[in-house]
């Protein structure tokens, strides 16, 4: 392709039909709404952690059965650990987002992607741990008390939900890895 041909291509490119100009006030409002949703998610997670923690304390105070205490205790520790690790990664991403480097550096995007992959990894591992614990809980429940159809159904549904969540995490992690690879290339 010589310079003349390229110039023709360039003018062809620049003569493409223009998109209609955006309303900046609407875009800024939308951006603020996204920020609000992000903060709301963090608040919801905090409330969920507090709820599980209080449930654990209640089970201790009310002297609930040992299996229930262990199960709720596990869920509390699992939730808090996951929340802390996730928040650490999110804070690191937020630091990159706030630094403004995203507008000027591909390295910042790579760091964000690495953080994202780490979060999906954590979700996958945490779900495996949860599935394992739930399996142990279900077996021990049936060993110490007679199993009824209702609780059996609940456990099966829980396993199905966790299975679906796990597949979503796998797909998301694979997609993030693919983009990271593209950026690194």
């Amino acid at each position: 392709m010589d310079n003349n041909e390229f110039e023709q291509l360039s003018s062809l490119w620049q003569s493409t039909e223009q998109k209609s100009l955006p309303h900046m006030d609407k875009l800024i409002k939308r951006h603020k709404r996204h920020g609000f949703i992000l903060k709301l998610n963090i608040v919801i997670e905090c409330v969920a952690i507090l709820a599980v923690s209080s449930l654990f304390l209640m089970s201790l105070i009310e002297k609930a059965s040992l299996i229930k205490q262990i199960w709720v205790g596990f869920a509390t520790i699992w939730g808090i650990t996951l929340f802390v690790l996730m928040s650490k990664s999110r804070l690191s991403s937020l630091k990159h987002l706030k630094s403004g480097q995203l507008s000027s550096s591909i390295e910042a995007h790579k760091k964000l992607l690495k953080n994202e992959i780490l979060r999906w990894d954590l979700s996958i591992k945490a779900t495996w741990v949860f599935v394992l614990a739930m399996g142990v809980f279900a077996v021990s429940k049936c060993v110490f008390a007679p199993c009824d159809a209702d609780s059996g159904l609940h456990i099966v549904i829980s396993f199905l939900v966790l299975g679906v969540a796990q597949s979503v995490f796998f797909v998301k992690r694979r997609a993030a890895k693919r983009v990271l690879l593209t950026l690194e290339q």
């Binding site: 995203l102 507008s103 000027s104 550096s105 591909i106 995007h109 964000l112 992607l113 997609a175 993030a176 693919r178 983009v179 593209t182 950026l183």
Partner: peptide, 11 residues
């Protein structure tokens, strides 16, 4: 860089 961000999010 916004385009890169877009590719990242719509992967």
């Amino acid at each position: 860089n916004t385009a890169i961000d877009h590719i990242r999010r719509h992967s």
